[in-house]
Nucleic acid binder design. Sequence first.
DNA 1: AGATGAACAGCATGTTCATTT
DNA 2: AAATGAACATGCTGTTCATCT
Lengths: 125, 125
Amino acid sequence: MAEKRQRESTGFLIKQRAFLKLYIITNIENGRWYGLQLLDELKKEFKPLGFEPQHSEIYRALHELEDEEQILTKIKVKPDGAKRKEVVVYKIKDMEKAKAYKKLVKADLERCEQLLRKALQDNFS
Amino acid sequence: MAEKRQRESTGFLIKQRAFLKLYIITNIENGRWYGLQLLDELKKEFKPLGFEPQHSEIYRALHELEDEEQILTKIKVKPDGAKRKEVVVYKIKDMEKAKAYKKLVKADLERCEQLLRKALQDNFS
DNA sequence: AGATGAACAGCATGTTCATTT
DNA sequence: AAATGAACATGCTGTTCATCT
């Protein structure tokens, strides 16, 4: 029944998922958001830099932040006028874990920045 | 018989393959190199930043630079003492293409740097 | 149409194996 | 063992489909 060996990272650049999780946490620290709302916001932010995330990645990030990281909880909210579908709004569940997660990602972002910086220096000067 | 639709990039960070190709070109501009030699050199360079590329990625990068990009050519060389296997050494075949490729990657690296920079600013200040 | 979620599919890349000297 | 190359395996993420209001 097929052992599944897991695969190691070679430590290249940060994954999109982690990058988005960081932004999601920060946004939710400042108020409640639901999935597509976050998608719109992030698309708007990154489009000038050529990056347009996909809705499914946002949902996957949210689900992992809830189930695995245990950083967020969700509340289902029926919107006002209510001809639209109910919305799944998230808020911070564990502020300590949120902080710890952000700290990790920060370190990785800085490492990645150094990698890119180094590449620019090593290959163009 | 199964049409294969191809998939678009969302434009997140640069791929490892392109990153390595850039370094390979630059190294080969300054002399001849073969695969494992490049691997050792690059591992040494990046290890302090937590990145350790794999031998197969180097070979794939070299093969693509030869076959698809048409930037390199190879020469098989029998090493001196010659108890070791012959070595596949590469040199620049098309300098113009090499320059053009590097220019593209440079632009992408700068874009990626901005993305990371932005993330650090947006989430930590 | 707006929102959420899951299934499906491709692709980049990590892992292993084969071959040669 | 050093070197090259290819086959195989897995995880990330893009695409599509289903369901609901």
